[in-house]
C-alpha cells in the first residue's frame, strides 16, 4: 500500500493515505462485501427456512407467541379504551388523546428499564419471578402496543360518521347495540390499529432484550437474536433472521392493507 508519514503538530503519527483510485477501489470492495452479506443472508434465510432449522423455528415461534399474546392482551384493553374515548365527550379528553399520541413513541428501552425495575428480585413484583421469562417480554410488549392501539382506535372512532349511532338509535337499537353498530362500521380501521400494534411489538428489541435477557432456547426472539448475531460478527445469520422478520411483518400487514383498501373504496 502506498503510505506516507505525515507530521501533525508536535506529535508524529503514521497515516495511510490512499490515492483517489485506491479510495474508489476501496468503496467498490465495500459495496461488493455488502452485497455479499445480503445475498449470503438471503441464501442462508432460504436454507434456514427450507431446512426447518429447529433453532430458527424456536426463535420464530417464541417471537410470534410473545408478539401475538402481547397484541391480543393490548387489543383487549386498548380497543375498548380507544372506542370509549372516541365516542364520548368529557373534560380532559384532548389531554388524554395527547398523552396517548405521545406514548406511541415510547422508547422500548425505557419500557425495558421500568419493567426491569418492577420485575427484578428487589422490585415490587419480583416475587412473581417473571424477569427473564417470555412472560416479562409479553408484559413489556403489551405496554408498548397499548398506547399505539388506543391512539389509532380513537382516531378511527372519531372518523366514523356520528349519524351511524343516531341511525341505529332511531331504528330502535339499545345504546349497546348502537355502539356495536359504530364499532362494526369501523371494523377495518380497528384491524389496522391492531396491525400497527403488532408491527410495533414484533420489531422491538429493547424491552425483549432487557426483560427477556436473550437466553438461548428460552427468551431469544428474532430481534434479540439479530442484535446478538450482528454483535458476534455473524452478519449473514443476522441478515437471515432479519429477512424472516420482514417476511413475518409483511405476512401480517399485506392482507390488512388490502382489506383497508377494500374498505376505503366501498
Amino acid at each position: 500500500m502506498g503510505g506516507q508519514t505525515v507530521p501533525a503538530g508536535s506529535a508524529r503519527y503514521t497515516a495511510v493515505m490512499l490515492t483517489a483510485g485506491q479510495q474508489k477501489w476501496g468503496v467498490r470492495v465495500f459495496k461488493l462485501e455488502a452485497i455479499r452479506y445480503i445475498t449470503e443472508g438471503l441464501r442462508q434465510a432460504v436454507i434456514l427456512i427450507v431446512m426447518l432449522d429447529p433453532q430458527v423455528y424456536e426463535i420464530v415461534g417464541l417471537t410470534l407467541f410473545c408478539s401475538f399474546t402481547a397484541t391480543l392482551i393490548g387489543t383487549l384493553f386498548a380497543l375498548p379504551t380507544g372506542f370509549l374515548i372516541g365516542t364520548h365527550e368529557f373534560r380532559g379528553k384532548n389531554s388524554l388523546v395527547t398523552i396517548f399520541s405521545t406514548l406511541m413513541a415510547l422508547p422500548t428501552t425505557v419500557v425495558g428499564l421500568f419493567g426491569y425495575a418492577l420485575l427484578s428480585k428487589s422490585g415490587p413484583f419480583g416475587f412473581l419471578g417473571l424477569l427473564f421469562t417470555p412472560g416479562a417480554i409479553i408484559i413489556g410488549e403489551t405496554v408498548l402496543c397499548f398506547p399505539i392501539i388506543v391512539a389509532f382506535a380513537i382516531s378511527t372512532t372519531q372518523s366514523i360518521n356520528p349519524l351511524v349511532r343516531q341511525t341505529a338509535l332511531t331504528l330502535g337499537a339499545s345504546p349497546f347495540q348502537a355502539s356495536m353498530a359504530v364499532f362494526f362500521e369501523g371494523r377495518i380501521g380497528y384491524l389496522v390499529c391492531v396491525a400497527a400494534g403488532f408491527a410495533r411489538v414484533i420489531a422491538e428489541v429493547g424491552a425483549a432484550m432487557m426483560l427477556g435477557g436473550n437466553i438461548k432456547g428460552h427468551t431469544r426472539t428474532l430481534t434479540t437474536a439479530i442484535a446478538l448475531e450482528t454483535g458476534k460478527g455473524e452478519f449473514s445469520l443476522g441478515m437471515a433472521l432479519g429477512i424472516i422478520l420482514l417476511i413475518l411483518a409483511l405476512a401480517v400487514n399485506i392482507p390488512i392493507q388490502r382489506l383497508k383498501r377494500i374498505g376505503d373504496s366501498s
Partner: peptide
C-alpha cells in the same frame, strides 16, 4: 327508550348506509 324511538323514526337528510 328503544321502544319509544321505534314509534317515531327519523330519516336523516344525508342518510347513512351501514357497510
Amino acid at each position: 327508550s328503544p321502544e319509544t324511538r321505534r314509534r317515531i323514526t327519523l330519516v336523516h337528510q344525508e342518510p347513512v348506509m351501514f357497510h
